[in-house]
């Protein structure tokens, strides 16, 4: 019931822009277009929904099957004790999406991580650099086309002699 309220509020505010995804496990999942991301997130963060916490932000690589990346946002509302999952597709030909770092501060690092691992650009991000990997690392390790064991040593490795 509770889940329905949020989705009703969303569909009322943004008619035609929000699609509910049915889930067999009972999670609230919503699919949106990436152009509407900022206004919808802003709406969700403030009243009446009050999803004040960005729990998680990640990305899934569907390049081989659907030709796109899928951004996955998890929001949490402390006042109503609810979680919501928001998905948005990033097509292969334009790898960018709006940054949420103005709304939530932890989005800064989370988006840098996604940039590091998948190569998605975030428009309006204050400091778009790699987070985990080092400068000079080529490729995006969590993409499906990056081989698991492709190493790019930062310093030349020793030859072990007996």
């Amino acid at each position: 019931m509770e889940n329905k309220k949020v989705i009703d509020a969303l569909t009322k505010a943004f008619p035609g822009k929000v699609t509910e995804v049915p889930d067999r496990l009972g999670d609230t999942i919503v699919r949106i277009e990436k152009d509407d991301l900022l206004i919808i997130m802003d709406f969700l963060k403030n009243r009446p929904c009050e999803f004040t916490m960005l729990l998680d932000l990640t990305c899934v690589d569907y390049l081989s099957s659907k030709g796109c990346f899928e951004m996955v946002y998890h929001l949490f509302s402390i006042s109503s004790n609810k979680r919501i999952r928001i998905k948005s597709e990033v097509r292969k030909n334009e790898l960018d999406i709006d940054s949420l770092s103005d709304l939530w501060k932890n989005a800064n690092w989370l988006e840098r991580e996604v940039f590091d691992m998948f190569g998605i650009n975030f428009k309006g991000h204050p400091d778009m650099r790699r987070l985990f990997m080092y400068e000079g690392f080529e490729g995006y390790p969590l993409c499906k086309d990056y081989p698991l064991r492709k190493r790019q040593p930062k310093i030349p490795l020793r030859k072990i002699t007996k």
Binding site: D27, L55, D56, T58, V72, H74
Partner: peptide, 17 residues
């Protein structure tokens, strides 16, 4: 399908997606 679940870890909400 996809699933998110979290437990209270030592540092806070420890969730797997």
């Amino acid at each position: 399908g996809d699933v998110y679940f979290s437990v209270e870890g030592g540092n806070g909400e420890l969730g797997f997606y």
